[in-house]
Design a binder for these strands. Structure first.
Lengths: 124, 124
DNA sequence: ATCATCTACAACCATTTGGTTGTAGGTTAG
DNA sequence: CTAACCTACAACCAAATGGTTGTAGATGAT
């Protein structure tokens, strides 16, 4: 059973981390390979420190993990975390789906009630 | 066919809009009902203008639409937009899934090749 | 041992964000 | 018509963001 126990702040961090093209690109790269922060920094038109900050944001959001190998720090994105973000969106969507479901159920109950007058409508 | 033609900035706006608990709550509320900005503002411990700004952020991100009714502006969240955000995440995830699929396929091909040298590997 | 590389982190700066208050314009109710 | 209500928007402010440079500590290569 997967517990969806993300606090509001965790979801904030998650989506905020995703709200930057550089960070999304880092995620894509580090899903394929493990890359050191320096190698990553080579890929972008900004300083090493800037990339380091982006990596820190991703790490605090739980989207990547770092692992030391010698003097370098290897970055790897955590696919489970991306999945977690999707779950947060699913939760949002489910409210809408819930409304549709409720409507369908009410409609169905109406139809049943017409066929069978003894059935009381149940609260959703 | 759904064209996933989101520019980087659009995705930025999308995730940035989602990276705030108040805005996510607005989305949830306006999936159920259509609410005026004033009614929404009643629900939060902040000024009307602040809520108005949150609504503006959601609107620029394409997550909600506003519709005038008399003097009020009714807010409704666009479920398709939430779905669009999920697609953006799917794209991120697909890189990882692609890697796994490729590995499984290679593994499968190896196994099939051992059992039956004439069979070409089929997609799972 | 020395030098180059990789990382961490502080200090600084411009811009954006998230909040405030205040003002002005439309729309509805009485 | 007037008063109440809803919205739009500007001006302002503190804090966070996204970038910079600079310094210092580990680690690896020669």
């Amino acid at each position: 059973m997967v517990v969806d126990d993300l606090t509001d702040e965790a979801v904030d961090r998650l989506f905020h981390a995703l709200a930057d093209a550089t960070r999304r690109d880092i995620l894509r790269r580090c899903v394929r390979d493990e890359l050191s922060v320096s190698r990553l920094a080579d890929a972008y038109p900004m300083s090493f420190a800037a990339v380091q900050k982006h990596v820190a944001v991703l790490e605090k959001a739980g989207l990547i993990t770092k692992q030391r190998r010698g003097r370098e720090q290897l970055v790897r994105t955590d696919p489970e975390a991306v999945r977690r973000a999707r779950l947060a969106l699913d939760e949002l969507e489910s409210a809408w789906r819930g409304r549709v479901d409720r409507m369908s159920r009410l409609l169905a109950e109406d139809l049943i009630a017409e066929e069978n007058p003894t059935t009381k409508g149940q609260e959703p």
